[in-house]
Structures are given as structure tokens and as C-alpha cells.
């Protein structure tokens, strides 16, 4: 049959098969197989011995492929602990600690990296039922220039109370004003109790609502609109600042290379 003319499987060069192949009945082999794949019915194929032979070849292959898949270990059987360990060994040599933030009083020389502080805040927020923390950025709230504070060491933010911006996903059953207050409370509490960082302001951004409960939804959206407006001004301000920081961050990174 036509299929055996294309060279033996042990042939030298791989891919050693024609792009197109016409069966003796005039049908393109590629087309016959694709029709079989899509399940498109074709009266010709049902009766044609050449097409039947071509399909038998494909089914044989599919049978062995199915067998090969069945022989594979189940997903949960893959041992990924060692792999994850090796990945994390490399990752921990290439951490991105973020900015360096002040701890304690202005005259103390104690600091914490942003990534560590953010993780603490996220954990505190996650402890609220139906609330999950996403992005968490921390910076120094604007310090009064006249206060005579000495310039911070290079690459560190000025010593002064922090401003935290946190995005949260919130279950629909929460009142958004209430949840924003709760989130603020948790962060202020964690900042004092777990870190020892002075926090001047916490911007809470509800980034996402969890669940799709239509009845609750309308109610919540009203709340959300209010919240959005409140956050609006803050946010513009915020974005300006973030742009500036993005530039600074670029410079720092450039210096590392």
C-alpha cells in the first residue's frame, strides 16, 4: 500500500516523509487523518479500503500512544521535592528584597527589607476570613524637610513613618468599608507588634471580589463605587510616586550589574 513507499522508519534523516501524500483513491492522507481527528463524517472514507487502511495505521499508533500515557507515573507520583529544593537554592541567591525601610525610632540604625515587611503584612491580612492579600508596597510617607533629619544611607528610604499600599481580594459577603478598616487595623497592629515599624497611612485597594452571588453583588457594588472614589485621589498621587520610584529602582538595578 501507498504508506509503505515513504521509506523505512529506521531511515537516515528524520522527518524523511513527504509533505503530502495522495492515497490510491485520490484522497490526501493528511486530510483523511484530520477528518478522523475532528470526527467529521465522510461517506467516502467509510467505504474506501485505502482510507480504511490509512485509518487503521493511525488507530494503531493511537493505541500505543494511549498505552504509553497509561504507563506514565500519575501526576502526584512525580517526586518534585528535590527539584523544588534545587530551584529554591538558586532563587535564594537571587532574591529581590525591594527597598530598605526603617525600623524603630528616628535615631536608631535598624532596617528591614520591603519583601520581609510585606510578607508579615500579607500574613496578618490573610488571617481575616475571606480576605487575601496580593500586592503590598511600602514606602516612607513624605517626611517634613524642615525636620532636620539626616539624609538616609544610599539606597535606603528616609527614616520616617511608612505608608503601606495593599491590594486585597475580598469575599462578597464583606462590607467593603468594614473590610478596609479591618485590613488597616491588622496592618497597623502587625507593624507595631511584629515589626516595630511606624506606619503613617495604609491605603487599601480592593482589587477583586471573590464569589459570584448576584444578590449580594449589587449591594456590594454601591459600596465599591464609594470606595473607588475615595481611593481615586490617593491613587493618582500614589501612581506619580510609583513612577518616580520605578525610575530609581531601575538605576539601582543597573548599578548591580
Amino acid at each position: 500500500m501507498a504508506m509503505n513507499e515513504g521509506g523505512t522508519p529506521g531511515g537516515a534523516a528524520f522527518g524523511d516523509v513527504p509533505d503530502e501524500e495522495t492515497l490510491p483513491c485520490g484522497r490526501e492522507l493528511a486530510q483523511v487523518w484530520e477528518q478522523a481527528e475532528t470526527g467529521e463524517p465522510d461517506p467516502h472514507t467509510a467505504d474506501c479500503p485505502h482510507c480504511a487502511e490509512a485509518l487503521r495505521a493511525l488507530r494503531t499508533l493511537e493505541g500505543v500512544v494511549a498505552r504509553a500515557r497509561a504507563d506514565e507515573p500519575q501526576e502526584r507520583q512525580w517526586d518534585t521535592a528535590a527539584l523544588a529544593g534545587r530551584v529554591m537554592d538558586v532563587v535564594r541567591l537571587e532574591l529581590r528584597p525591594g527597598r530598605t525601610l526603617a525600623l524603630g525610632e528616628p535615631d536608631e540604625d535598624a532596617w528591614i527589607v520591603e519583601a520581609a515587611a510585606a510578607r508579615t503584612f500579607r500574613a496578618a491580612v490573610d488571617a481575616l476570613p475571606g480576605v487575601r492579600a496580593g500586592s503590598c508596597r511600602i514606602e516612607t510617607a513624605v517626611v517634613n524637610a524642615a525636620s532636620g533629619a539626616s539624609a538616609p544611607p544610599a539606597g535606603r528610604l528616609p527614616r520616617g513613618p511608612a505608608r503601606v499600599r495593599i491590594e486585597v481580594q475580598v469575599g462578597l459577603s464583606w462590607n467593603l468599608q468594614l473590610v478596609a478598616d479591618e485590613v488597616r487595623g491588622r496592618i497597623v497592629e502587625a507593624a507595631d507588634g511584629e515589626l516595630g515599624m511606624r506606619v503613617a497611612a495604609v491605603d487599601v485597594v480592593v482589587a477583586d471580589l471573590l464569589d459570584e452571588d448576584e444578590e449580594d453583588r449589587e449591594d456590594q457594588e454601591d459600596q465599591e463605587d464609594q470606595e473607588d472614589q475615595e481611593d481615586q485621589e490617593d491613587q493618582e498621587d500614589q501612581e506619580d510616586r510609583e513612577d518616580r520610584e520605578a525610575e530609581e529602582a531601575d538605576e539601582v538595578e543597573g548599578g548591580q550589574r
Binding site: M3, P9, D19, W33, R56, A57, L61, G63
Partner: peptide
Amino acid sequence: RGRVFRARRYLTEAMAGWR
């Protein structure tokens, strides 16, 4: 599609003995 076809073509050939 062309590559999948050529691979199938090659493999059906290779597995012809199991038909």
C-alpha cells in the same frame, strides 16, 4: 499541522509491525 502530520506519518510507519 504539517509537522504533526509528518510525525504521524513517520510514526505510523515505525509502528506498522504492531498493526
